[in-house]
Simulated assay, not measured.
Amino acid sequence: MVSVIGVYGGLLDKFPAGAWMNRALTLRTGQCHVQRYMKPLLQRIERGELDPTRVITHRLPLDEAERGFELFKNKQDNCEKVALKP
């Protein structure tokens, strides 16, 4: 099953529907209610109940932003999230 959760961003170009169908995947989507959840989630982060930094796999200086984008785009070095430091 593939799930896509977030804020709708418009049309998707070149969505691989054939590969999705050939693998008999179930595609589920859902709109994220940002206004409902942003404040309580931020409060939990501030209280130390949630640590969003655990998804950061790479920390780079701002002048290496292009390298960080390439790492993420090409899924190199197990890159999931890049944090840039000014």
Rank of each mutant, 00 (worst) to 15 (best):
H58V: 02
E80Y: 12
G9K: 12
E49P: 02
L62K: 14
C32R: 14
D63E: 14
R67N: 05
H58F: 06
A24D: 08
Q76L: 12
L84K: 02
C79Y: 06
P16T: 09
H33D: 15
P86Y: 11
I56V: 14
L50C: 10
W20Y: 10
I56E: 10
W20M: 13
F15G: 04
L42S: 10
E64P: 01
E66P: 02
G9N: 11
P86T: 05
I5A: 12
E46V: 05
R44C: 04
F72L: 15
K75Y: 01
H58P: 00
K14W: 07
R54C: 05
R28W: 04
L84N: 00
Y8C: 12
V4M: 13
R54K: 09
I45A: 08
I56K: 08
N78V: 01
R36V: 08
Q31I: 13
A65F: 06
L11Y: 06
I5T: 14
D13N: 07
T57C: 00
R28S: 15
K85F: 09
K75T: 05
L42K: 03
I45F: 06
P40A: 03
P16M: 07
G18I: 06
R23E: 05
K14R: 10
R59H: 09
D77M: 15
V55A: 15
G68K: 00
G68C: 06
K85T: 13
R23G: 14
L12A: 06
Q35F: 09
G48C: 06
Q35N: 13
E70C: 09
P52Y: 00
H33C: 05
Q43A: 13
C32G: 04
I56R: 05
N74M: 06
G68A: 08
V82W: 01
R36Y: 03
Q35V: 10
D77F: 12
D77Q: 15
Y37L: 11
N74F: 05
Y8R: 13
K85Y: 12
I56W: 06
E64N: 06
L84V: 02
E80R: 15
V55Q: 08
Q31F: 13
K14T: 09
V82Q: 01
E66G: 08
E80P: 00
L50H: 03
K85D: 14
G10E: 11
Y37C: 07
L84S: 07
T57V: 00
M38V: 03
Q76M: 14
R67L: 07
E66A: 14
A19H: 01
M38R: 03
A17W: 05
C79D: 08
V7R: 09
A19R: 03
D63N: 14
A65L: 10
E80M: 15
V2K: 14
M38F: 04
N78D: 08
L41I: 10
F15H: 05
Q43E: 10
L27S: 05
M1S: 15
M38Q: 02
E66D: 11
K14H: 12
F69N: 01
R54N: 03
N74D: 10
P16W: 08
V2Q: 15
G18D: 04
V2G: 08
